[in-house]
């Protein structure tokens, strides 16, 4: 197997696969904009399932920052930069292609956000996508390959909540003035929660049922800012960081989980 790879030049392999791809999927040939830059085989299924009918364009201005190699697959930090030049953004969807839970979160924007950071679970190495829905119904997709050294972020034990059961739903919060990529406000919060995937079997053979935060909303003095649909592909005690240019006073984070519990930070005191 290894010997065979050595004798083939990379360019020959590339040419072969390019040809192969065009023979199998001729429609890709004349729709270069929708070609997946990371040459994934299952992207089209993902696109249909999570992004629907709208036109899709891969766009390198949406930047995904991931560690160059990932040792702890239970807690993978990701930052997505959403350039303000894109204009009015409606939704952001984070997808991990090779995950058993592919959609990490879906963010509905009621006001602009310029970056979104979170901690997530990756089962194995995978293309990670950030799809951004513009007002005209077009999706722009940024991608990055995650190189996972120790697989099992969704299915292996570990990466548990650092909080006690009594602390489930506790919301901790920190605001950074001028902390964002455009020197605007950055808001960081952590919700104590196990975020169990339902895919983990403990050493004693017992399986841990799925239990996770499914919705988060952020409000300020001017009303609803953001809503997140979340999945257990977010890490235990997920930490979310967002850059919001027009953040007002009286910030409030609310969340609910898959057992129907509701969590509310109340109005948070102003920073500093």
């Amino acid at each position: 197997m290894a010997k065979l790879s050595v004798t083939l030049q990379p360019s020959a392999i590339a040419a072969f696969f390019a040809l192969f791809t065009l023979v199998l999927f001729p429609h890709l040939g004349n729709a270069a904009q929708t070609l997946d830059p990371l040459a994934s085989t299952n992207w089209l299924d993902l696109q249909e399932e999570y992004l629907g009918e709208g036109p899709v364009e891969f766009n390198s201005s949406i930047t995904l920052l991931l560690p160059p190699e990932i040792e702890n697959s239970h807690e993978v930090p990701l930052t997505v930069v959403i350039p303000r030049t894109l204009g009015d953004v409606q939704e952001v969807v984070i997808l991990a292609e090779n995950n058993p839970i592919q959609q990490v979160l879906r963010l509905h924007l009621h006001r602009p956000v310029h970056s979104l950071s979170l901690t997530m679970r990756l089962e194995t190495s995978t293309p990670v996508r950030a799809a951004v829905l513009l007002a005209d119904g077009k999706w722009l997709v940024g991608s990055q390959l995650a190189h996972v050294l120790s697989p099992g972020g969704c299915s292996a034990p570990g990466g548990n909540s650092g909080g006690e059961v009594a602390q489930v739903g506790e919301i901790a919060f920190k605001q950074f003035e001028n902390g964002g990529i455009y020197k605007n406000d950055r808001l960081k919060f952590r919700i104590t929660h196990p975020m169990d995937t339902g895919l983990v079997t403990k050493a004693n053979g017992e399986s841990v049922p799925a239990y996770y935060i499914d919705r988060i909303s952020i409000h300020d003095g001017s009303g609803l800012l953001l809503e997140f649909d979340t999945q257990a592909a977010m890490s235990a005690d997920p930490v979310v960081t967002i850059d919001v240019p027009e953040l007002q006073q009286n910030i409030r984070v609310m969340a609910s989980d898959s057992k129907g519990l509701e969590f509310d930070s109340g109005e948070l005191p102003t920073a500093q």
């Binding site: 790879s5 050595v6 360019s11 696969f17 270069a32 040459a39």
Partner: peptide, 22 residues
């Protein structure tokens, strides 16, 4: 685009070869 694809396949080939080598 072709150039970009070659690079990607080179990367994939490197990863595959790397793994089998290990």
């Amino acid at each position: 685009m072709i150039y970009c694809k070659s690079l990607i396949f080179f990367f994939v080939a490197t990863v595959l070869f790397g793994l089998s080598h290990f």
